[in-house]
Design a protein around this nucleic acid. Structure first.
Lengths: 203, 203, 203, 203
DNA sequence: CATGAATGAGCGTTCATTCAT
DNA sequence: CATGAATGAACGCTCATTCAT
């Protein structure tokens, strides 16, 4: 909380290290080399390595909370909001793809219970928010109401996570924003109420 | 390929170690301790640690290929087949939950390009198969045809991955098979053709 | 010599650190934390860590010299003087038990020849003074004269050191002054001339 | 307990390191250098550094127990026994003076409670044994009975410890055995019953 | 088929100390 | 008079791996 400039630099170096070499590549030596100073100097800014990881999670948690808070009280249609939130995340990830190597890789933190619990919360926060979105969409008749909102939330989040993960596994070579748009249109199709469209599409 | 009994024991010990302590817990020392013999003895059976990880991936790859091959030429309806394949995986995972800590954690292998590429293939193989399933379902009129089969496949696989991951993050406390059933019923709902049901559900 | 207030504060913090955590606990970091300012600030007051240890020894040396000087020209009987000097030390130690962790632990300074030599001198100074006391007591007929004064001095000092060390090992839980009194009475008994008491006591 | 040859070698290297450079000189690096192999190799033989210190204490404890056990049931006169036991210790110390740098330096172990407690026991064991010796000597009329046996024990042990410590501080330059003999004769003088000697000595 | 002993590199961390501000 | 940031060396310890037996 309230990180110094140096602390922020270190955190982002750590995120990029994890992105490039995995959690095993996040060593104090690698980190200090990337920062351009000695290993000992790291300890001026963070008490320990797990403090660094903890700060990374804090960062993502705050970011998630802020994004959700922004959208929470919007008046937009549910489908627009869904589109917006995934679009928002894909913008963030596109700006610095390294983030996804950390935020979607719970395994990284599994050694430290205190950390993994907090990362799990981030998933849950997102899922719960998506669930609320679906539910209110159903109330307004914007979304089909023959489905369980929480399952729909899992469905939305799971799909988004997979396209992001594939994007990463492919070396961020294509546009995540385009993929996200395709996905949200797909969601619009499958989650829309079952109006008279039926006959047309069946053709 | 053609692993000895000892090699298989070692591989499963390794999988369980990863499950329990993460990739950082997979050390030759831990592994040999779990096997009940010395570190040097491990090297009788595998040339190096990477070879062990490689064998793990081979195992999962072979397993995936076999599962898909089994189902590929089935005459069952697409939705039944979808149900069957997820049910099959959830049975395997329930029997030994440690598997999911490895198979869904691509990060683990990201250090070694040779390994991570092969793990990515497993995802793709599954996704392609699901895509073919959806496509044939659309041809037979069992599935709605206003959606892109490959997006539907991402949707199916992503959702399943997320319920499995959540199951793990919750310490395998509840039944994955039940969750999988709920998910496949959800899929049945959203992927079914938009027959005359329309009006009824809208009520 | 001629220490500033701050220097004295630092020295006493150092003594207490050694008392609590041993010489390995006397680090600049610990010391500055205890003083409530930064590590760098320590170096305003002392050129180096060795200088701090050196000042501690100077302190004890001066203290010892002063105590002995005070008593040296007393007219009291030798046994009274012995009692007085041990009582004096036990008062000092009781006021701040941390002292004994330093003054009786020559090992602490053994790395630096310059320091250990000076600490040894303190022992010798005390022992020589006790020797002179015994000798003058023998001259006056107050102490038995069938013993070597310097051996008696070793005997006196060694015994006192051991009761102090035991007091420390027991966590300063009981009264050192009481123990010292018991010890000096014991000395009175064994060092007194062998008058006609003989027969009585033998009974 | 039941140390291998290598473990014994390491322990004795450690004892000599402590003797030469103090506890701060006992580093794994120094130790392995003295042993002629790498730091990592030490850990084949001891789980940790404090295990090494623990083994050293075990060694001294066993040695003390054995010495006391040997003498405990002797029929010799108390003064002879006192002489014997101090002589025995001074022989051991003379053979390898490094021992005294460890056995009489409780400060060394003060960081680890488990260790310091066990070292304290060694002092106590010796003191209690000396106390029993004095008491039985008093019963037999060999020792004066106007003194408290436990105070006498403190007196004996404290004095012996001081001559040993002085011997060390003087770089083991003179004969400890001679000094010990002088001390035990002194003890014989002050602890003997107050027979008719009185008048003679008083002359 | 397995062990015991060893290695060299690297781990996270702490040390006393310096220096510009 | 004190701080914040840094250093280089050392700390205890673990890593994957090798090799003679």
């Amino acid at each position: 909380m309230n990180l110094t400039t140096r602390q922020q630099e270190i955190i982002w170096s750590a995120i990029h290290l994890i992105d490039e070499k995995g959690i095993q590549g996040l060593t104090i030596k690698n980190l200090s080399a990337r920062m351009g100073f000695t290993e000992a100097a790291i300890y001026r800014h963070f008490k320990s390595k797990i403090n660094i990881l903890s700060a990374i999670i804090d960062l993502f948690k705050a970011q998630t909370a802020q994004i959700i808070n922004e959208k929470e009280h919007s008046d937009d249609h549910s489908l627009i909001q869904l589109k917006n939130i995934f679009s928002h995340y894909s913008t963030i990830f596109s700006k610095d793809p390294a983030i996804v190597s950390v935020i979607f890789a719970e395994e990284i933190f599994q050694n430290e219970d205190s950390l993994s619990a907090r990362l799990t919360e981030i998933i849950e926060t997102n899922e719960l928010f998506l669930g609320r979105l679906v539910q209110s969409g159903q109330k307004n008749g914007e979304l089909r109401n023959d489905i369980d909102p929480s399952l729909a939330a899992t469905n939305l989040l799971g799909s988004f996570r997979l396209i992001v993960k594939k994007w990463k596994l492919n070396g961020f070579r294509y546009s995540l924003k385009d993929e996200t748009e395709r996905l949200t249109e797909y969601f619009a199709t499958i989650l829309s109420p079952l109006k008279d469209k039926t006959n047309q599409e069946q053709a």
